[in-house]
């Protein structure tokens, strides 16, 4: 009888909740500690590979990151400098902009004279899968490779043309059905790059 009373008291509810919370939290903490290292390494490696890709450096070995790349800080933005056998390859800047559904995070690497893009990598995006999501596809990103971005001190404004047309040096094939996402990428590059140049000056 006494025991049943205890179960019915308010104190028992609190007691029970505290015990069960502590129990489950400790299980979760243990599981978190077990996976933490693996998750972090995976995340770091993905980031390193993307940076290597943006410099067109071999990304199959993450060790290359430490070999060629240095991280620098510029105001509130980290950026990367790549050197290969004493020769400066270029700079890589993380950039972000608004997409159709959410923000797009990307990396853009440029040559040491800031004139040409080396390569573009999309880090994060929330565009429609199969439509805007195709901005992560190689054919789309590859269009930016070696494009002249800065001409006579002015940022080149790229034009969008439809997916199957031939392009000249200032044109980009857009993704059919995802004009807004394609445009967002161009806008992001333009705005962020002019921002970066301003800060560098």
């Amino acid at each position: 009888m006494a025991k049943k009373r205890f179960i019915e008291t308010r104190f028992y509810s609190i007691f029970f909740m505290v015990i069960i919370t502590a129990f489950f939290i400790s299980i979760l903490s243990a599981f978190y500690l077990l996976t933490e290292k693996k998750v972090n390494t995976l995340k770091e490696n993905t980031e390193k590979k993307l940076v290597l890709n943006s410099f067109d450096l071999p990304a199959d070995d993450v060790q290359n990151f430490d070999k060629f790349i240095k991280i620098q800080n510029l105001q509130n933005r980290n950026y990367y400098i790549a050197e290969r056998s004493g020769k400066l390859i270029g700079y890589c800047f993380p950039i972000n902009g608004k997409g159709l559904w959410g923000s797009i995070n990307a990396l853009i690497a440029v040559t040491p004279d800031f004139q040409r893009i080396i390569n573009l990598e999309i880090v994060d995006q929330n565009e429609t899968p199969g439509l805007g999501g195709r901005i992560t596809e190689d054919w789309f990103k590859d269009q930016f490779r070696k494009k002249v971005l800065l001409e006579n001190g002015e940022i080149v404004e790229f034009q969008l043309v439809s997916e199957d047309e031939n392009t000249n040096k200032a044109q980009i094939n857009q993704i059919t059905g995802a004009t807004l996402s394609s445009r967002s990428v161009l806008k992001m590059i333009e705005e962020e790059y002019s921002e970066i140049l301003k800060v560098l000056k």
């Binding site: 599981f31 996976t35 998750v39 995976l42 993905t46």
Partner: peptide, 13 residues
């Protein structure tokens, strides 16, 4: 659910 989430993050990123 958190266990599932951590598992996916670690093994199926």
């Amino acid at each position: 659910v958190i266990i599932v989430d951590l598992f996916l993050k670690a093994f199926l990123p």
